[in-house]
Computed example of a mutant assay.
Amino acid sequence: ETDEFELHSPTLTSTKWWVGGLGKISTHTVVFAQLWLKNDKGELVNHGPHPFLVQVRSQSDYSSLPGITVGDIGPKFGYATVDNGFLRMDKVRIPRNAMLNRFFNVTREGRYVPPPHPRLIYAGMVGVRVYIVNDSFNAIARAVTIAARYSAVRRQFAPLGDKSGAPRELQVLDYGNQQARIVPGIAAAYSLVFVAQRLSEMFSNVMYA
């Protein structure tokens, strides 16, 4: 009737948790919410999770908007520098055009227009998983590059049985134990880069074909 959606998270389990960038600074966020619409008989039907663009804070003073409870989830083990937050909504109304509806839609009359394939609803979340694989490659590649280069220039201990007296220490990389630690990391980095490239191609083919 008002050409709006109402977002409501009445339970603890419906709270959005661990949302990146939401803890302190984000003014807007994309919320995946269950889409409930009335059918021709007036019965509520759940069409599954759909994405909506929602403003959660004022752009002038960053205070939370009416109906919005938002904040930081606190320290995380080994991840405390990332601004992860939580979000609860109390009957927050947003305009109908705030739905991210490239592949699906809800008409002005409240009729649901489904996507060509149901999996397209989850396309945004799938894309993030593809990026995670690519970021994992970058992280492990940097780590093993530093380790391999340092092991090649760092020398330590003379060979056993060497009685020449010459200050001839071995490269750390010559030790089998060191190779056993670094070589699998290098192999994993190469594997991840090929997997990331293939996943990106597959995702692009699905999204932009």
Rank of each mutant, 00 (worst) to 15 (best):
S204Q: 12
S191F: 08
V153E: 15
Q178G: 11
T11W: 04
A187Q: 14
Y175S: 14
R102A: 09
R198E: 03
D40F: 00
V183D: 10
V144A: 10
N46G: 03
Q59I: 08
G23F: 05
S58E: 11
P49M: 08
G85I: 00
S58H: 09
A196I: 00
V92R: 02
G165W: 04
P95M: 05
A209S: 13
L44F: 09
H28P: 06
G85D: 02
H28F: 05
H28E: 14
A143Y: 11
V30P: 06
T27P: 03
K38N: 04
I121M: 11
G23I: 07
I73Y: 00
E43W: 00
P114D: 05
S204N: 11
Q178E: 15
Y79N: 11
I186P: 12
F77E: 11
R93Q: 09
Q179L: 14
S26A: 15
L35N: 07
R108D: 12
S136E: 12
Q197P: 00
G48V: 04
R149E: 13
K91G: 05
R168H: 06
K24E: 14
P66W: 01
D174T: 11
N134S: 13
R57V: 01
T27R: 04
G42V: 05
V56H: 06
P95R: 04
T145M: 06
N205C: 05
V56N: 02
L65W: 02
A188T: 07
P75S: 05
Q55H: 08
R119I: 12
Y122K: 14
E169K: 12
I121S: 10
Q197F: 01
T81K: 13
W36Y: 13
R88Q: 14
I68Y: 02
M99T: 06
I186G: 10
D72S: 10
V128I: 13
L87W: 02
R129Y: 10
D135W: 13
P10T: 10
L35H: 06
I146K: 13
H28G: 03
I94H: 06
G161P: 15
S60G: 02
G110L: 08
A143V: 11
A166F: 05
G20A: 11
V31G: 12
I73P: 01
V130T: 09
R154W: 06
G74E: 06
P114M: 05
D61L: 07
Y122H: 15
K91T: 10
E201Y: 04
K24T: 15
A33P: 03
I73C: 01
E43N: 00
A143E: 13
Y150H: 15
P115F: 01
L199P: 01
D40Q: 10
V106L: 01
H28W: 09
D162L: 05
E109P: 14
E6T: 15
N177W: 12
D135N: 15
S151F: 02
G21I: 03
L37F: 00
M99W: 04
I94T: 06
Q55P: 14
A143Q: 12
G42Y: 04
L35A: 07
P116T: 03
Y131G: 15
A180F: 07
L65Y: 02
E169M: 14
L53D: 10
A180D: 13
F52V: 09
A152S: 12
P159A: 10
L37G: 00
P167S: 07
T69F: 01
A147G: 08
G48N: 10
L160P: 15
N84Y: 15
V31I: 11
T11F: 04
F5M: 11
